[in-house]
Design a protein around this nucleic acid. Structure first.
Lengths: 240, 240
DNA sequence: CGCGTGATTGATATATCTCAATAACGGTGG
DNA sequence: CCACCGTTATTGAGATATATCAATCACGCG
């Protein structure tokens, strides 16, 4: 068994310096930006709110006021269909921004909840927009982040079968941890299979079977809410 | 047979006054906004470029310069997967904006082509951003449009089976025509079943069978690249 | 009129879903 | 620390939706 003692939950700094707003990617790694504008943003951010599993960040229908950035843990965005069943339409991991669906009509379109305990930052949107109006660079970053989200949706729909869906989800999480200086091959994985199945559009049992197959083929291991990618090559072969 | 002589292709005005940038929805209908800012936008727009079926609006990898708004016809956004097959990840109908996927990295992520002959407008992005920097309202509208696109993706993933996917697609098109003053029950439908199947994540044959069933059940008719929704209630029942 | 493309339909294969039973896990209270 | 109970995950057998393969049909275009 590999070392599992790394504490992924603990904030690394007291300000929210590692969300997409305040960092940029250089050679696959996220690094903080140092600038007057970023300092301005940080001055309006409410940092590191702790949250327990299943607690709500924002509720569908509520008045849009804030964007949020995940600091640790995992969050889900739930849409209530007209038939009344819940569809998980997005999953957020550290560094990502939540709440873009509130801008359009001034009300959030989905409900966002914590999948595991974790922490997040609050970015009051209208002050942020004020800053964006002053600083060209911030306006720019904001639009780029929204563009990135649009791309993410475009691409995430391009997988076909259950195995590919799961692997590409795990790969996204892996990439993210890697980009933030953690191992790409071992990382926390706290989402329930029910939620994940819902998100991927699969039955719970189907997802479980795919997991079993991947374990049996010695491609990955799942224990203690940690995933270990054992055979990285075979793992990647599944999706390309 | 109903009247099919309405010319949906012909621009109604010489400036691009009916895209999402320059209109707002009031009671399910799109109306033009009259303001200094909108006039400023219109002054930088290149209006009503004609395009033939299968011609390209922009190519994946090309340098991002412009946003585009559909004026008439239908367009598809194609993503080339690593395995080399083409996935249609988005479909655009009149009034919608194309090109948001270029903002993030300054290069378009997908290729956009005309599904049928049609026309579109070109909005140079950097001049637009300049305007957005000057006019708070334009900055606002831009972000709202991107937010709307994000919501559209969130929601479009919540359908389950083939029939629901198709019906909800047709409904989107119907809603759009309705919002622009046309009939909600009869409108052009020029996309090939191959493209549509690809977009909906179905096999071509499956889609064809669904169409056949809907025709046999007298819910809709498809002739001459026009869809007629015959039984609007049964039609809507399928998705809610 | 003929040819190529796109659409339809049938027969069969396959992936995924559903239902059901069992097993593992995680938290709680003694 | 252990026993208990509810939740979550696993596994099997069978049903179902969709994919695949193949043949035919319809349409638009030169």
């Amino acid at each position: 068994m590999l070392n599992t003692s790394i504490d992924f939950q603990k904030p690394k700094s007291s300000n929210c310096g590692d969300c997409e707003l305040c960092t940029q990617t250089v050679e696959n790694r996220r690094v903080r930006i140092q600038s007057e504008e970023i300092a301005a943003i940080e001055s309006i951010i409410d940092s590191h709110i702790l949250i327990e599993k299943n607690q709500t960040v924002y509720e569908a229908g509520a008045t849009f006021q804030n964007l949020f950035t995940v600091h640790s843990g995992m969050f889900k965005s739930v849409y209530l269909t007209q038939q009344g069943d819940e569809r998980i339409v997005d999953v957020f991991i550290p560094g990502q921004i939540m709440g873009f669906d509130g801008i359009h009509k001034g009300k959030y379109k989905t409900t966002v909840k914590a999948v595991s305990s974790g922490s997040y930052c609050v970015i009051p949107f209208y002050p942020l927009q004020e800053l964006a109006h002053k600083h060209r660079d911030i306006q720019n970053r904001l639009m780029k982040m929204m563009s990135e989200k649009i791309i993410q949706f475009e691409i995430s729909h391009s997988e076909y079968n259950a195995k590919q869906k799961l692997v590409s989800f795990i790969k996204d999480v892996s990439d993210l941890y890697y980009s933030r200086g953690f191992s790409a091959n071992q990382f926390p994985f706290q989402i329930s299979q029910r939620d994940l199945a819902n998100y991927l559009g699969l039955a719970e049992e189907t997802l479980s079977r795919v997991f079993s197959k991947l374990k049996k083929a010695n491609i990955l291991a799942l224990a203690d809410h940690q995933i270990t990618i054992i055979d990285h090559d075979s793992f990647l072969e599944i999706i390309d």
